[in-house]
């Protein structure tokens, strides 16, 4: 059926062929063919989806392929397939095995994991706190949490300099207490990285948890208060089951960016504090070794894919409901 036949013309072929592209449908009060609706949807989405596809999705697939390519002598890419980049990830370099890269990777995972735990640990009290405010005030409290989240990461990382620098009160205190030598400062250090990372990722954990805490069913908590004497019992049996999905989101939203952190370890971690993100940046710019950079990024690609898969699964579940 051609589209010109559609509105306002005799309806000889009114029979609705379910699913056929040319079949006429009424959608939101509009009489059109499925094909025409799909064409319109495609045209509307074309720009945005095209950009996401061309600049994000396909390049991420390309990164996976690149991980098996070879670096040419001048940093160009040669499509000689090799496993060398992946082997390097496990420590097998040109100069034989060395644990350096493994240290960086495991340190990255550790920093991301500790950051996530700290963020969630602080996010829970914050979420409950904001939810316990009178409704009219909650926006203001949320804004207080959102402002740092939307502040530039470079500023938020370097903002620790004055606090942790050589002449800061905190540093002096640490020197007096004997944690630091007299010529040492609190940054660059692992502590500075943890502080910076936790501060930067905290809002991402608070927002999903707050959304869930605000919707908590008070009846269940009251019931739990009757059943369990301890607050921990109430938390574990009445609250946790209700916020589990949000907790998963909070974990994903902190762990994945924390694993890919670049600015904080770069500014606060010092030369010995190199993490995955710094290594990645180094390979793409300083060393110009894209295939190796791609191999390093595989871990992040895998994390993103897992996160997306998880998101897709929850969506499918909701759709099934």
């Amino acid at each position: 059926m051609s589209e010109r036949e559609l509105p306002g013309l005799p309806t000889a072929a009114l029979k609705n062929r379910d699913g056929a592209l040319g079949a006429r449908v009424v959608w939101l009060g509009e009489l059109a063919s499925r094909r025409r609706l799909f064409a319109r949807g495609g045209a509307l989405m074309g720009g945005g989806m095209g950009l996401i596809l061309a600049l994000v999705a396909l390049p991420m697939l390309a990164l996976v392929a690149l991980a098996f390519a070879t670096r040419g002598t001048h940093g160009e890419i040669e499509w000689t397939l090799t496993l060398n980049n992946l082997k390097r990830l496990f420590g097998y370099g040109i100069l034989g095995w060395s644990p350096d890269i493994l240290w960086i990777l495991s340190r990255s995972v550790l920093v991301a994991a500790v950051t996530t735990v700290l963020c969630v640990a602080f996010a829970f009290p914050l979420a409950f706190f904001v939810a316990s405010r009178p409704p009219a005030r909650r926006y203001a409290w949320l804004a207080l949490i959102v402002v740092p989240m939307l502040t530039n990461v470079v500023i938020r990382a370097y903002a620790w300099f004055p606090l942790l620098g050589m002449h800061s009160p905190l540093t002096k205190l640490a020197q007096i207490l004997g944690f630091l030598a007299a010529d040492e400062a609190l940054y660059p250090s692992a502590l500075a990285v943890y502080l910076g990372q936790t501060a930067i990722n905290l809002p991402f954990a608070v927002l999903p948890l707050y959304a869930a805490v605000e919707r908590l069913d008070p009846a269940l908590i009251d019931a739990a208060r009757d059943l369990y004497a301890s607050r921990w019992g109430i938390f574990r049996h009445a609250i946790l089951p209700q916020v589990r999905a949000a907790l998963a989101v909070a974990i994903v939203l902190t762990f994945v960016p924390a694993l890919g952190a670049f600015v904080v370890p770069d500014l606060l971690g010092g030369a010995r504090g190199m993490l995955l993100g710094n290594l990645l940046q180094q390979q793409f710019f300083t060393a110009r070794n894209w295939p190796y950079g791609a191999a390093i990024s595989l871990m992040l690609v895998a994390c993103s894919v897992v996160a997306l898969w998880y998101y897709g699964r929850t969506q499918a579940r909701e759709a099934a409901r």
């Binding site: 509105p7 306002g8 013309l9 005799p10 309806t11 009114l14 009424v26 009060g29 509009e30 009489l31």
Partner: peptide, 8 residues
């Protein structure tokens, strides 16, 4: 015939 016409 009404069916041939769109709602509007």
């Amino acid at each position: 015939d009404l069916l041939a016409k769109p709602a509007q």
